[in-house]
Design a protein around this nucleic acid. Structure first.
Length: 822
DNA sequence: TGGTTCCACAT
DNA sequence: CAGTTTGGAACCA
């Protein structure tokens, strides 16, 4: 029979006969769930021979390999001598096939130590990941499978043994069935719930096709779509039953890899339940993090994607559901004291409805967030060819590597291996020089223009053919880097200009594809979210490519390439600085890929003419763009020095939008009061208020701080714990407070954001730091000296007012009082 | 006081 | 588990 279907996920299994099969889970065009089996695909890896003459003999010795381990005999099914490419050069290698994945590890290690073996490649890849790449199957596009249907209990409607699979249409599955869920759990005394002890009380489900429900196991009257179950066991069973009945394409949660799925798995175990659904809820370990797996349903943890991928551009203070929703959606999270749920459950079950509606709302929010970021994830599926399950949990480096691996196969490129521990250690130690930053002259400026290179690093990779394979010993027909300092010596790198490397080529594809999409966006009248998402996805992969070259875990790691990119970057930005000055524009500032100049007597037309001139001389896709015009800008000095501080300034655009960079205003580890005061003062300065006004304002605030009139919430300082409490050599205030929180039974570890207030008292700051709830007062002296004044001092200095000088100025004794301990 | 450690941010 | 540069607070010797 022939069936059209959208592949959604891929798996692999070996049956009792020791045969392996690839499983493609998907949805047919008629809405059925399907599992397509492909038993024709065999695991393989590549072997380089030390010398060409050794090829034939090596082939024979590999073919003869047999290893017995745990009553299983691993052997080699076939060895081919084949022509491939490695580092953009033709190579002849052995391609070694084995029956199933588990033979791969055993045979690979045995081959590695054979005489005449140069190196083994691609032996460390899970077979299901490379299947999609090798067969050029992109999840979510429409395919046609021809084969025999057969019976098997799989929790799918249809199983097919594939004879052939081919593309029908590259348009993606349009309306996937999405079911979002959220659980609420018993807890007592504000303690975080413990899976071995505290049962699951509610599970909410919210779909994009009308289905909504809350499951719970205590009765109360309710207007909501609540279903009451006998006990926790029945609740878990019913949840599973609903998943089977509803059979969604995606099951979506927020932080469900980290909480909901492991919790459900633990509760099922406590209740001695064997879940029907496939192998039940599985929590796989992937390095440090866990991943929730449910066979047959694609579980997406939307938190991971929002934090890891969207986080790059969102830059939120926290990725709690509440904060993310506030920034991305119209809808809000309900306000309710969720830690009370245990007490209410035990003592006032008639009040449980509010918790149900909170529960349902959270599930709804997970769904809305999923719908919001799905276009982004879909585009990454299209570009990398990996299923949503992977994309949703990927880091930037993985996205780049997926893309490289997919495209590499088109060029018949063999992948480099992952680094071993020793290599990783070496790479981590050897850093290189980064971008150029201009030292600004402190002051208040007017009529500024910012110019910047469009995608500087990706465009340099393309223009200079920067890739490990094109590093050349010869100087002729090459692109030559400026001098680079390495181990105290000045050297240059050369990249061949004779042929284009496959990496610069596929980076160029990303840039060109994105440019085409941007043209389409311009033509559209309404905002087209799908096109925006495509553009965004292409951009993040292109931009992460440079970082990937310098990343210690990368297959295509190359410090030479990473440091050449920054070296060219420094050269090209210096060029623009020099040309600006030659054309009569005073340069105020520059960082990495941007330059800020004073317009002065010149006109906007002069700037456009200058841009055109510069761009005419730039190679390849490189281009300088106009970022914006600003009416004012302020640059301040470094603390305790006369030099201008880098990466610290504030601008106001001609349209009136403020842009604050590097100031405490936008840093998490400063108190709200200091940030608020600084922001207001900056605004006054940039909008052209008189200095007296700003001075008056700051004096008012200082009086309030001194008289302890400021609510303590504004005094909270937040710092993130970057490692385990025990791992600190130097105990700062936030570590001290974290220790106290742990004493109180809170779960604080790496990543926890610690809030504290500095209270009155003697000794070090850490001895005076308290958890906000335990802080009885705040130390006005500390907040004036270490928070409020430092936040504004430098700004006033630029305006010619030294707050410290006011000390000796008797006419200004109001301020003096504050400076001298009050 | 200068040196070290730690954190957040810019790009 | 994308890179380096930078400023600045807090602690330590």
């Amino acid at each position: 029979m022939i069936v059209e279907f959208y592949p959604l996920d891929v798996g692999y299994e070996t049956n009792v006969d020791g045969k392996g099969a690839i499983l493609l889970f998907g949805r047919t065009t008629t809405g059925q769930k399907i599992c397509v089996f492909d038993t024709t695909y065999e695991p393989y890896f590549y072997v380089f021979a030390k010398h060409r003459d050794a090829m034939k003999h090596l082939k024979e010795s590999i073919e003869a390999l047999k290893i017995e381990q745990d009553h299983h005999i691993s052997f080699v099914t076939k060895v081919e001598i084949t022509k491939m490419r490695y580092m953009d050069k033709d190579v002849e290698v052995l391609k070694v096939y084995v029956p199933v994945q588990k033979d791969l590890d055993a045979i690979r290690e045995e081959v590695r130590v054979l005489r005449d073996v140069g190196d083994v490649r691609e032996g460390d890849l899970p077979i299901q990941k490379r299947y999609l790449v090798d067969k050029d199957i992109v999840p979510l596009a429409l395919y046609k499978v021809e084969g025999e249907a057969f019976e098997r209990s799989m929790h799918v409607d249809l199983c097919i043994m594939a004879e052939s699979i081919s593309l029908v249409d590259s348009e993606f599955l349009e309306k996937p069935k999405i079911l979002a869920f959220d659980i609420e759990v018993y807890c007592q005394d504000k303690h975080f719930p413990i899976a071995e002890k505290d049962p699951v009380l509610m599970i909410a489900l919210y779909s994009n096709y009308g289905f909504q429900k809350v499951l719970t196991w205590k009765k109360f009257s309710s207007e909501l779509p609540v279903e009451f179950l006998e006990d926790e066991s029945a609740l878990l069973r019913r949840f599973e039953e609903i998943l089977e009945q509803e059979n969604p394409d995606y099951l979506v949660g927020y932080f469900s890899d980290g909480f909901d799925i492991p919790y459900l798995a633990a509760r099922a175990k406590q209740n001695h339940l064997k879940m029907h659904l496939g192998d039940g809820f599985k929590v796989a370990r992937r390095g440090e993090v866990s991943v929730g797996k449910i066979k047959g349903i694609i579980h997406l943890d939307i938190f991971k994607f929002i934090k890891q991928i969207m986080g790059g551009s969102l830059k939120l203070e926290s990725y709690s559901l509440r904060n993310v929703v506030e920034n991305l959606l119209e809808e809000k999270k309900y306000d309710i004291a969720i830690e009370e749920i245990g007490v209410v459950w035990d003592e006032q079950p008639e009040m449980l409805e509010q918790f149900c509606s909170y529960n349902l709302q959270d599930a709804k929010l997970a769904l809305l967030l999923c719908e919001k970021v799905l276009p982004n994830m879909n585009e990454l599926v299209r570009v990398t060819g990996q299923p949503l399950f992977e994309i949703c949990r990927s880091s930037y480096s993985q996205l780049v590597e997926f893309y490289f691996m997919k495209r590499a196969r088109e060029f018949k490129e063999i992948y480099p291996n992952k680094p071993n521990n020793q290599e990783v250690a070496w790479r981590r130690m050897h850093t290189y020089e980064g971008a150029f930053v201009y030292e600004p002259k402190p002051g208040l400026y007017e009529h500024l223009v910012v110019l910047d290179y469009r995608s500087l690093y990706p465009s340099l990779i393309v223009a200079k053919n920067i890739t490990p394979s094109m590093l050349s010993e010869e100087r002729k027909e090459t692109y030559e880097t400026p001098f680079i300092e390495e181990d105290g010596k000045k050297i240059k790198y050369f990249f061949s200009s004779k042929e284009e490397g496959f990496i610069p080529l596929i980076v160029k594809d990303l840039i060109l594809r994105r440019n085409r999409i941007k043209e389409l966006i311009k033509k559209e009248e309404k905002k087209n979210f799908v096109l925006e998402a495509r553009s965004y996805s292409l951009k993040i992969i292109a931009n992460a490519t440079y970082g990937y070259f310098g990343f210690f875990g990368a297959r295509w790691y190359s410090r030479e390439c990473a440091s050449s990119i920054t070296a060219f970057g420094r050269q090209y930005i210096q060029d623009v600085i020099q040309k600006s000055e030659e054309s009569g524009f005073q340069v105020v500032y520059s960082d990495t890929d941007s330059v800020m100049v004073v317009l002065g007597e010149k006109t906007k037309e002069d700037i456009f003419r200058f841009l055109k001139e510069v761009n005419e001389q730039l190679p390849s896709l490189m281009e300088v763009e106009l970022e914006d015009f600003y009416s004012r800008g302020i640059f301040v000095t470094k603390k305790g020095e006369d030099k201008g501080a880098k990466k610290k300034y504030a601008l106001i655009s001609e349209k009136g939008d403020m842009k604050v960079v590097g100031f405490e205003t936008i840093r998490r580890d400063w108190s709200f009061i200091a940030k608020e005061v600084q922001k207001k003062v900056l605004e006054m300065v940039l909008r052209g208020s008189k200095i007296e006004q700003a001075l008056e304002y700051i004096q008012e605030v200082l009086t309030e701080v001194k008289n302890e009139q400021i609510p303590k919430e504004k005094m909270i300082i937040q710092t993130q714990l970057k490692k385990k409490i025990s791992g600190y050599d130097l105990v700062g205030p936030h570590v001290m407070v974290a220790k106290r929180m742990r004493e109180l039974g809170e779960d604080v570890g790496p990543g926890s954001v610690i809030k504290y207030i500095v209270t009155k008292g003697k000794g070090l700051v850490r001895d005076k730091a308290r958890i906000p709830e335990e802080a009885e007062d705040y130390d006005p002296d500390y907040y004036i000296r270490n928070q409020v004044l430092p936040a504004v001092e430098k700004i006033f200095e630029v305006l010619g007012h030294n707050l410290k000088e006011l000390e000796s100025d008797k006419t200004q004794n109001r301020l003096q009082k504050f400076w001298n301990h009050g």
